[in-house]
Amino acid sequence: MNGIGSRIREERERLGLTQRVFGDIGGVEPNAQGKYESGERTPKADYLAAVAARGVDALYVLSGVSTPMAVADLNTDEEVLLGCYRNLPQADQEAVRQLLRSLGGATPRALGGSAAY
């Protein structure tokens, strides 16, 4: 399953919420939440605004493109890690990505969303 429904489910699962709780956040019944996730129905803007206020990446849900994280939002450790990563040769960067996928069971989206993952 591709599209908005699968991305809604992915975001709900990323946040560790049940369909019932997620539906409550979005102001819909659990059956509507299920229909959104299955692709039977498309959510309205007020639903997306409500779930976005609780941490859902609405741009990702709508387009499949993650909202970029502002550099100002990185903590010191993240800045150091990112700087080290960027200084690595391409082959070593791929090795780091593979290691992170192995350790964390990360999805391609969690590691940048590239088709190369």
Rank of each mutant, 00 (worst) to 15 (best):
M1K: 12
N2F: 08
G3M: 01
G3L: 09
I4E: 02
I4W: 00
G5M: 04
G5N: 07
S6L: 14
S6N: 13
R7P: 05
R7A: 03
I8G: 02
I8Q: 00
E10L: 04
R12M: 01
L15Q: 10
G16M: 04
G16Y: 07
G16A: 06
G16Q: 04
L17C: 06
L17Q: 11
L17G: 07
T18E: 02
Q19I: 01
R20K: 14
V21D: 09
V21I: 12
V21L: 11
F22I: 05
G23R: 06
I25G: 00
I25M: 13
G26K: 03
G26C: 07
G27R: 04
G27V: 08
G27A: 10
V28M: 07
V28T: 09
E29C: 10
P30L: 08
P30K: 11
N31L: 03
A32P: 00
Q33I: 06
G34M: 05
K35G: 06
K35H: 11
K35V: 01
K35T: 05
Y36I: 05
E37D: 08
S38R: 15
S38N: 14
S38K: 12
S38M: 12
E40S: 10
E40Q: 13
E40G: 12
T42M: 07
P43E: 01
P43Q: 00
K44I: 01
D46E: 11
D46L: 06
D46Q: 06
D46F: 05
Y47M: 09
L48Q: 04
L48N: 03
A50S: 13
V51F: 00
V51G: 03
A52H: 03
A53F: 01
A53I: 06
R54F: 05
R54Y: 11
G55I: 03
V56T: 12
V56G: 04
V56A: 14
A58I: 00
V61D: 00
L62I: 07
L62F: 04
L62Y: 03
L62H: 00
G64S: 03
V65T: 12
V65P: 01
S66F: 02
T67H: 03
T67R: 12
P68G: 10
P68N: 08
P68L: 14
M69Q: 14
A70M: 02
A70D: 14
A70Y: 01
V71K: 14
V71S: 15
V71Q: 13
A72Q: 13
D73P: 02
N75R: 02
N75F: 01
D77A: 15
E78Q: 15
E79C: 11
L82A: 14
L82E: 07
L82Y: 09
C84T: 07
Y85A: 11
Y85K: 07
R86P: 00
R86W: 00
R86Q: 12
L88C: 01
P89A: 07
Q90P: 15
Q90L: 10
A91T: 00
A91S: 10
D92K: 11
D92Q: 11
Q93N: 02
Q93R: 15
E94A: 13
E94I: 06
A95F: 04
L99C: 11
L100G: 12
R101E: 12
G104I: 05
A106C: 15
A106V: 09
T107D: 12
T107F: 00
T107C: 01
P108R: 13
R109T: 15
A110N: 10
A110F: 04
L111D: 06
L111F: 09
G112Y: 14
G112R: 12
G112H: 14
G113D: 07
A115T: 15
Y117M: 10
Y117S: 11
Y117D: 13
